[in-house]
Each structure stands twice: as structure tokens, then as C-alpha cells.
Simulated scan of single mutants.
Amino acid sequence: MLFLDSPEHAAFRAELREFLAAELPAGDWDMRNDRDHVSPEHARFTEEFRKKLAARGWLTMGWPRDFGGAGASYMTQTVYMEEMSSAGAPGAYDQGVWLAGPALMMHGTPEQRDRWLPSMRTADVHWCQLFSEPGAGSDLASLQTRAVRDGDEYVLNGQKIWTSGALDADWGILLARTEPDAPKHRGISYFMLDLKTPGVTVRPLVNMMGSHHFTEVFLEDVRIPRDCLIGEENRGWYIATTTLDQERSSINRVVMTRSTLGALIDYVKGVPVLKARAELRHELAERYLEFEIGRWLCYRVAQMQSEGKVPNSEASVSKIFGTELQRQMGITGLRVIGLPGTLEPGSKYAPLRGQVERWAMAAPSYTIAGGTSEVNRNIVATRGLGLPRD
């Protein structure tokens, strides 16, 4: 693996930076300060920005050309996500494009692809992922939401939780149990759910930041057409595993950390009493080195994908390292800034416009979302190192 851009990727990175400099708002309105901010102004800008990405073909650049994408390599997609996340750009990561789209392309019928893929390409429809449940998070295969066949329909009953963005979503990808007596991994099916269907209730989950990025979704006798089943009945788990590996290999966790680190370093440089403290300089240096390691772990995943390999344990290593680094950045930020670092965005006394407070408050979720660090460590141990399960 080469630790530098190819000429093609260097040119693409320059194009992305030029676009971001021209299209992102100037001033203090930074998308990274509050990832759960859902003001009308932010929502309108995100919609407009996603449309611009779609018009350039960047939103679906990784899709095969046969499905309207650009057939971009994994390395090119990683460069794209790195630059978008570094700039705090909204809408670059789209759950429909990255999660639902690949499932349809691999397992959907031609009619299903024609139904859902076009609106993903044009950014006209919002998607969410309806996987986790109150008793099935890390052990996702323990899910209890039921889908019972009734003629040409399925009847859904159950509850999903920690669903990102469901309040603004139009559709969701959903796992439900269709064969309760089968081994837990073999009785699950994969569905597309219209969130406007009668019986679907979405409720916000307000977190300790006062935001409601996460939601819980209740399903009460929800009837969906049979053609919303993707792939074979009872084979949904095997469709979902490719989705989870894609989610864990993203570079955005690490590069979002880099922006916070750069802001902290600049802050320390401007405060002589902090600049003189060797232990703070050493801690910031450690975070900088960890950022470089995390970045290249992500590129290793992309390189393996480019070579046709399946980065299972490697994706888990990248996910563990990236989210642990995010958590550590919140701790470092508070240690560097001290008590003023606990002030929320909006306070005129908050250093860095409250960015550190956002990181520290959100830190507990980083090592849980998308697969806990504990589960991913087990994956590394068993699939990467070949250690026994017992």
C-alpha cells in the first residue's frame, strides 16, 4: 500500500476542496458543531447540498455504471468521504445510497431496483436503518420484530430503537423475524418499509445534548406488500452482514476527529499558559499520531476492497480505533480547555463555539453505534487472530 495519493486521486481531492470552498457557508456556521442540529435553515441547506452532490454524480459514485453510478473505486470513494467529513459537509453519507442501494443491487429484482434506485440517485428520498431493538443491539440476531405472511402482504409487529434520522426519513430498511422456530440467524428477512404506512409510529429519543438524532419506531399491525421483501425469505441476515461491514469501514469517524484536534492545537497556541504545559503538548501529539494511524487503517480497508478482498476483521479494527479515538478526543478537549469546555454551543463564553462540549457529551455513543467495541474486538479475535470462542 502506497501512503500517498495517485495523480488521479490528488486531482480529485483538489476538485473536492475547490467545490467545498465555494459551496459551504462562510463564517461560524460549521456542520460539525452539532451533528444533531435540525433547524429549518440547516435542513434546507442539507437538501440543497445533497442535490448538488447528486447532480455531480458524487452521491452514487461508488455504484456500478449499470445502475446509474460512476463505478468509482473504493479508494476514490474513501477520498471523497475524507474530504467531505473533514469539511463538516452535510448529506455526503446517505443511508439509502450506502446501505439500501447495495442491498437492492445485489439481491433485489429488476422491478425493485427500478422502483427505489432512481430516487436514491437524485437524493429525492430519505432512508433510515431499522435494525436495532430494545433487546437486540450488539446481538442483532436476537431481534423479535415479527413479519407474518398474510396472502400478498406481510404484517409487521415490534419495536426498533436507536434509529438515526427516522423523523425525517421516507423509507427504511428493516429486519424482521419470519420464522420464529429457526436458528436465530436463519429466520430473519430483509424488507423495505414506507414510514408513512398506517401503524408506524416514530418517536424522538432526546439525548443528554438535548438533541433527537435517534428515534424509536413502533410497528403495530403494519401491512406491507409482499414485493417489499428483498431477496429470499429467512435469508435477510446474510444481506444485512454486508451492510454492517460497509458501515464499519467508513473514514468519516477519524477525519471528523482531525478537525477537532486542529482546533484544539490552534487554541493552545493562542494561550501562553497552556502552550507552556508539556503534558498538554504531549497529549495533543499522541492524538495527532493516533489520527494518522486511524486514517491509514481506513485506507487499508479501502485497499483490500479494491483488491477484491473482504476486510471483515480489518473493518472491525478500523471501527474500534476510529470510535475510541473519537471518545478520547472529548476527554482530551476537556483536559486542555478545562471547565469552559463544558459550555454549550451558543454561549458567548464557550471556547471553539462549544465544539469540545459536543464531542464530550456524544462520546459514550461512539463506541456503541454501528457495533460496540466489545463485539468488534470479538470479531478481531475470532476471525482475524483465529482465537477460540470459548
Rank of each mutant, 00 (worst) to 15 (best):
G27V: 01
G370D: 08
I251N: 01
K309N: 09
A369D: 13
M61Q: 15
D266I: 00
P110M: 11
V217E: 05
W58V: 02
W296Y: 11
G151P: 03
L174I: 10
Y349M: 12
R35L: 14
G308E: 05
G371K: 03
G270D: 14
S250T: 07
H213Q: 08
L130C: 13
L280V: 04
F45P: 12
W58M: 01
Y267T: 04
A136T: 06
E153C: 12
H9I: 04
M1Q: 09
H9L: 13
V79A: 05
G137K: 12
P118Q: 01
L205C: 01
V310K: 11
R149N: 03
H9M: 07
F191R: 11
G69K: 08
T243D: 12
D245E: 15
R149S: 09
E232Q: 15
Y288S: 13
W58D: 01
T76E: 15
N234G: 03
P90N: 06
E357I: 01
R287F: 04
R300T: 08
Y299D: 02
L175I: 09
A43L: 13
I239K: 01
P272L: 05
V356A: 06
T46A: 13
G210W: 05
R186A: 10
A100Q: 10
G68T: 04
A285E: 15
E247D: 14
D34L: 05
A381E: 10
G27S: 06
H42E: 11
P204F: 02
R358I: 02
T201D: 11
Y80T: 05
T78P: 02
M1L: 13
M192I: 15
N376E: 14
R65M: 09
Q303W: 06
Y238K: 09
S142M: 07
L325D: 06
L175Q: 14
R13E: 10
P7H: 04
G370A: 02
L167D: 07
R146P: 02
L334R: 15
L117T: 12
V254H: 03
L334S: 06
P311M: 11
R113P: 05
Q129T: 11
A360C: 07
R35G: 01
T241M: 12
L99Y: 11
P340I: 09
E286P: 00
R32E: 09
D28L: 12
T145N: 09
D245V: 15
Q129N: 10
P134W: 03
R300W: 09
L4C: 04
H107D: 13
Q144H: 08
E374C: 01
R300C: 00
L284V: 08
V222E: 09
R50W: 03
A100V: 14
Y349F: 12
E133W: 03
E283A: 14
